[in-house]
Design a protein around this nucleic acid. Structure first.
Length: 934
DNA sequence: CTGCGCAAGTAGGCTTTGTAGTGG
DNA sequence: ACCACTACTTTGCCTACTTGCGCA
């Protein structure tokens, strides 16, 4: 069995034209996705097996400490004595993904006899750190693609959440959970004013009875998985959380399933571009280690969602590993055995021998195992450290299999290890028994990493506690970790895991609601990582309604509550001066106010208000940089050229001595001209809010045109900018006595309808000028914009501007003129048609006359079947008849009418041109005609 | 580990008022 | 002579923004 990288031997992949065609088609897509030179995908979609098994990617991330040589890295996979050679072609200066392909049939064989297979990866000549290509910025196309992937991934994750939510309502699962519950805890269902503390014993019981498993078991559907988890009391974080939600719901508690949507990055992964992404590699690893591992659906979704080359090594490998593991993990866990490294510290070669059922697994784990050794221990750049960390994590994920096979121990012990006390956490109330941890505790080298990086919470529940606060509130319940009301710690835990809470979504009733605000205190950190809010809101709108229907119970406002709420509202607004200009809160406050007036509010509207309030009461960041694009606050130093603070206050605080202003005070300034285009003019005697330097090009241009241009001494002209508070509606001179007021160029600039002088109209019809001139009405060409050509801009004129009173007259005349023009056009076309017919027939007649002159008249021929020939020629005779009507049929040269001779076209004299499908018929008189046969 | 300042590089916005030739 | 139409040729500067890196 032998495969080669396509980059080296593309011809080998072409087992047939179908495959190559397929490759081409898929390649286009992948090319777009990857936009990587030389990276090709073998897409053999026709072969279902080849897709799942024939591809794996190995990212060359190895760096050489001292040596500068960069060459070809050659990987060899030996399988039962045969070599699978993966030649990894390397661009000398570029880190690339490379594809190794294993032929389908052979791969299948390898999976069926996996325990006997051996895969060797040889890696030689590693790239130098110093020769890493400098980072390349993502192109617009890559950004667009990343956004698309982000959006699709979000939709998939939403679906996943809804799926889990639905299963949480399963009566059988709920009943089973209830049957497990001690009778004493059943009473919680009857507590009228539920509080977080009341939930304590229940959560404690659940936490003690359900544990996380270190590996996933896929039983087909999530429901089956959940049932199995319930039975074994072991499950993934998602399953255990879902069970907790099901239990709470069984107890009649209003409960949501919450999930942190660990979505693919909105921005193109920087690793692709030759540098490291501080958070996404780890993030993505988490996606696959938690979400994917727990769901086959997710696997497929994630596979779909990662056509991007943006996946990092561990990220891609881990997900492919898991995916592949699913397909082949039939006869037990992977048995991975490692060969000692061939190369010493001084050599650059590296041999990896792996046994197991998953090639990717082998490649990944062994490679990862070997990687840290490659990193210089000393000076590490941030990216290197990140990458190493990420690799260790991936390594940890695969470590279970390693220990299982090598030590002859079993994974049961490993999963049992999840019962062991976890390392203490600094930031979490209670350390989470994350599957990684359970793995890592058995893996000495990585435990240091994971003790610091506790698994961030990904799933939890929210239970509506009517006994909390005035009108009740949603209480965070992380039954997996036995935490109640720990919402304030979620962000810290997420931050500790380098996993920002980009999207925290609550699922209930088949719907979903974004509740990120509740858990995220530093919105400015996640805002740039989220998709544009309009799209997200539109997506969530229908789901939010469903969620609201399921959870939005009515709250009867008591008189005292009403009073307090009423006094709270204005107080909230006072809290943040932005509210005067910001209407974010307006909606929810209004709604609540309406609800208050009726004495009834929904949980939903109250929650909306709470979330909106949080949105406007973010604490001031302590570092200046955070203000650069902060949605609430601004520092004067980060204002752009056209931004201005008006009013300059209030000062909300200080950061490093710089006053902090509300973002709502930032106004966009424009030049007089720009305001004019919006139908506004600067108020007389207004002092420019800001005077900025003009572009050099503009200065140059102005000076070339106007020698007396009042440029400054330093050669830099200035540009006066005005704010919106300095402008007023445009007051243009009115049209008087039928005369249109024009500018210095004798035209009217019609940027918009607002720019039209009063008393005038803009007529956009073509060919109006002659009509208006004929009527002797004053007009002005309407300049509607500019077109940029040849490095110069040219005005675009569209229609004319005339006084309103002439509009009807002009339109009537124009209609008349257009009718006349159309009639004239029609006449012209007809005469042209006649003229062309005349030319055609003339040429035919001339040709015939010439033939007659030079062909022997003695070879006249009697047709066998004159009638048929006559039929054949009928149409042509008709044509000649029409021709004669023009007085052209008379053959002047011979003096005889062409009708004196009836042409005949004997079959033997006919010829047919197969290329042009033209049959040429010849009359013995010499006349011939060509007929196109279809 | 974080923040800050700087440099480098890139994407994308902005610029902004013809002319010569041909044919009817 | 006048008018209408078409081809010509595909700018380039500047700014905002991103990112990496060194330093504190």
């Amino acid at each position: 069995m032998r495969t080669r990288s396509q980059s080296q031997r593309p011809e080998e992949s072409e087992s047939g034209s179908l495959a190559s065609a397929s490759k081409e088609a898929v390649g286009k897509l992948l090319k777009r996705a990857s936009s990587r030179k030389g990276s090709k995908e073998k897409g053999q979609q026709e072969d279902p097996i080849s897709v799942e098994e024939s591809k794996f990617k190995v990212e060359e991330i190895l760096k050489e400490k001292d040596k500068g040589n960069v060459g070809n890295a050659v990987g060899t996979i030996s399988n039962k004595g045969e070599d699978v050679e993966v030649s990894v072609h390397r661009d000398a200066n570029e880190l690339e993904w490379e594809d190794g392909n294993i032929l389908a049939s052979e791969s299948r064989e390898s999976y069926s006899h996996d325990s006997e297979k051996e895969i060797t990866v040889e890696l030689t000549d590693f790239p130098s750190t110093t020769q890493r290509k400098t980072s390349r910025r993502a192109t617009a196309e890559e950004k667009e693609l990343a956004e698309l992937v982000h959006k699709v991934h979000l939709l998939c994750l939403l679906s996943r959440g809804r799926l889990v939510d639905r299963v949480c309502n399963d009566p059988l699962i709920q009943a089973s959970l209830l049957s497990l519950l001690p009778p004493s805890l059943l009473e919680i269902a009857e507590i009228p004013k539920l509080t977080g503390s009341t939930l304590g014993p229940l959560v404690k019981w659940f936490h003690n009875n359900f544990q996380l498993r270190s590996h996933d078991v896929d039983r087909g559907s999530f429901k089956s998985n959940l049932a199995f988890a319930l039975e074994s009391r072991l499950g993934t974080a998602e399953e255990v959380t879902a069970l907790s939600v099901a239990l709470f719901r069984a107890l009649n508690l209003t409960t949501r399933f919450l999930s942190v949507l660990d979505v693919a990055s909105l921005k193109p992964d920087r690793d692709v571009l030759g540098c490291s992404n501080p958070d996404s590699p780890r993030l993505d690893t988490n996606i696959f280690s938690s979400a994917v591992a727990s769901s086959s659906d997710q696997v497929s979704a994630s596979n779909l969602l990662h056509p991007l080359p943006s996946s990092t090594c561990s990220n891609d490998i881990s997900h492919e590993t898991l995916a592949r593991g699913k397909h082949h993990k039939k006869d037990g866990r992977p048995i991975i055995k490692k060969s000692p490294l061939k190369g010493s510290a001084s050599t650059t070669g590296l041999d990896i021998v792996i046994s197991g059922d998953s090639i990717a697994n082998k490649l990944c784990s062994d490679k990862l195992e070997s990687l840290p050794a490659k990193f210089p221990v000393g000076s590490k750049r941030k990216g290197d450290a990140e990458f190493e960390l990420q690799l260790e994590m991936a390594l940890s994920a695969t470590a279970a299999g390693v220990s299982a096979s090598n030590l002859g121990s079993h994974v049961d012990e490993l999963s049992g290890s999840s019962l062991l006390p976890s390392p203490p956490s600094k930031k979490l109330k209670k350390p989470s028994l994350h599957q990684h941890e359970s793995v890592i505790t058995n893996h000495g080298s990585s435990s240091a990493v994971w003790s610091q990086k506790l698994g961030p919470p990904t799933y939890w529940a929210e239970v509506y506690c009517s006994g909390e606060t005035l009108n009740g509130r949603w209480v965070h319940v992380d039954a997996v970790n036995g935490i109640v009301d720990g919402e304030s710690n979620v962000e810290a835990a997420a931050a500790a895991g380098r996993k920002p809470l980009k999207y925290v979504v609550a699922f209930s009733g088949g719907g979903a609601k974004d509740v990120t605000r509740r858990y995220c205190m530093h919105w400015y950190k996640i805002a740039p990582r989220r998709v544009n809010s309009q799209w997200w809101d539109e997506v969530l709108a229908p789901l939010k309604l469903l969620e609201s229907d399921a959870t939005g119970g009515m709250i009867r406002m008591e008189a005292s509550n009403l009073k307090e709420m009423g006094s709270e509202l204005p107080h909230q607004e006072c809290l943040n001066p932005l509210n005067t200009k910001d209407d974010i809160l307006e909606g929810s406050y209004k709604k609540v106010a309406t609800d208050l007036s009726s004495g009834v509010a929904t949980r939903n509207s109250l929650e909306d208000m709470e979330l909106d309030t949080r949105a406007l009461t973010e604490p001031l960041p302590t570092n200046q940089l955070a203000y650069k694009n902060h949605h609430l606050y601004v520092l004067e130093r980060w204002l752009t050229k056209y931004q201005f603070l008006h009013p300059k206050g209030p000062v909300l605080g200080h950061c490093s001595g710089h006053p902090v202003y509300p973002r709502s005070c930032v106004q966009i300034l424009q030049t007089r001209q720009k305001w004019l285009r919006e139908g506004l003019q600067v108020i007389a005697n207004e002092i420019p809010a800001k005077v900025v330097k003009h572009s050099k090009k503009f200065v140059k241009m102005q000076r070339s045109e106007d020698v007396s241009f009042p440029g400054e001494d330093d050669g830099q002209a200035t540009m006066e900018l005005f704010g919106k508070w300095q402008v007023e509606p445009l007051s243009l001179p009115c049209a008087k006595n039928g005369v249109v007021p024009k500018n210095e160029r004798g035209q009217v600039d019609v940027w918009s309808e607002k720019c039209l002088p009063p008393g005038t109209v803009h007529l956009k019809f073509p060919r109006l000028v002659p009509v208006v001139r004929r009527l002797e009405i004053d007009f002005a060409p309407a300049m509607v914009g500019f077109e940029f050509r040849n490095g110069r801009s040219f005005p675009i004129f569209e229609g004319i501007v005339v006084c309103s009173e002439f509009k009807d007259a002009i339109l009537a005349a124009y209609a008349e003129e257009e009718d006349r023009r159309e009639a004239e056009e029609k006449r012209r076309q007809e005469s042209q048609a006649v003229s062309r017919w005349f030319q055609l027939l003339s040429s035919i007649v001339t040709r015939q006359r010439l033939q007659n002159s030079y062909v022997d008249s003695s070879s006249s021929y009697e047709p066998n079947n004159p009638r048929i020939e006559e039929e054949n020629n009928k149409s042509f005779d008709d044509m000649l008849q029409r021709e004669s009507e023009f007085g052209l049929a008379q053959d002047a040269a011979t003096g005889m009418s062409i009708h004196n001779h009836a042409h005949v076209f004997p079959i033997e004299d006919q010829s047919f041109d197969e290329e042009s499908f033209v049959r040429t018929k010849r009359c013995p008189c010499g006349f011939s005609v060509q007929v196109e046969e279809l």
